[in-house]
Design a binder for these strands. Sequence first.
DNA 1: CTTTACATGTAACTCGTTACATGATTAA
DNA 2: TTAATCATGTAACGAGTTACATGTAAAG
Lengths: 179, 179
Amino acid sequence: MALSHAIMTALLEDQLSGYELTKSFDTSLGFFWKASHQQIYKCLRDLEQQGLLRSEHIAQEGRPDKIIYQLTDAGHAELEQWVFGESKFRESRDDLYVKLYNLTPDNLSHMRLELEQRAETTRERLQLYQRIQARHYAEPTALPLRKRGVALVLRAGIAQCEQYLGWIDDCKQLLGDAY
Amino acid sequence: MALSHAIMTALLEDQLSGYELTKSFDTSLGFFWKASHQQIYKCLRDLEQQGLLRSEHIAQEGRPDKIIYQLTDAGHAELEQWVFGESKFRESRDDLYVKLYNLTPDNLSHMRLELEQRAETTRERLQLYQRIQARHYAEPTALPLRKRGVALVLRAGIAQCEQYLGWIDDCKQLLGDAY
DNA sequence: CTTTACATGTAACTCGTTACATGATTAA
DNA sequence: TTAATCATGTAACGAGTTACATGTAAAG
């Protein structure tokens, strides 16, 4: 299960509650790894049972109590080891590609619309990444090693968005003059 | 379940057995959608039960019998409709990105190695795509609409590979001069 | 007065992977 | 004789989604 390692990674710097993790999985690491709150809460309990995390119950006023988690020594060790394991390359499994195999005059305008929607969300995402990059990762060679890793992930995100937008333009060209 | 639609799509042109589908999912559509034979056989049975596919039992000499499947009218109709539904954008969920968040001097050389392995498999894949493109999709504006769709998917694959290779070069640069 | 944010959970289900199983034929 | 190709399956498990459930407080 790689979600556990993504969660442990998110806990490297801060101790966080399930709720906070869920939110950070909507941004940051979550740009590359989506997870629902149900998955995260479950995974946290499992990791605690395995001794990789330690929890603390925090009473709060005016809002529900929360449970915050932090890495144990065993958790740190596990993460460090995990990095050395093999990781395989998963396919994207995007419906859109399957749909394109089904392109017909009937659905052509619908496909153009879907492509435009993808372009729109991709543009938004790209802007967000670029803002984060400009703010925190503008000078990657000046960063400590771990931050350089994060900077590279961000670059991957940016490059993917740009590539995707270019491809959508290609699609529009090739579909635009059809029928 | 989008796998069913990927399978139905593969059956648009030919009638195929589970075994043949499994192989074509190792190539072609399978570049964008991986599935194991267990998944495929099960899905085929389910689709037949739903009346979207029809099967035929073929006795063979010198090799096992096989069951070939083809789309029914209901299957065609279902596929046509499905294209009009919403499809959402899934994240890549790649371990490698999570690992990069864990970059340390200790694992730096391992990370370089993993990046190089990715580059190698990506280069092979890219060459394969380019060969297919040159052979069958060299002149996309001359193709009928459905083939244009396929050509676009192939272009997406090529552009992704190129982008990925460029990113790996970036990584090497930023990690190469570290420590 | 309704929605959003905070905070955590259960249950059912679908999707996907891994391991195991069978058995013939053909090529190295 | 060992491995690969052909051909189809079961079973167990792990990962991920969707629906449902609860309850307070602040903001609109």
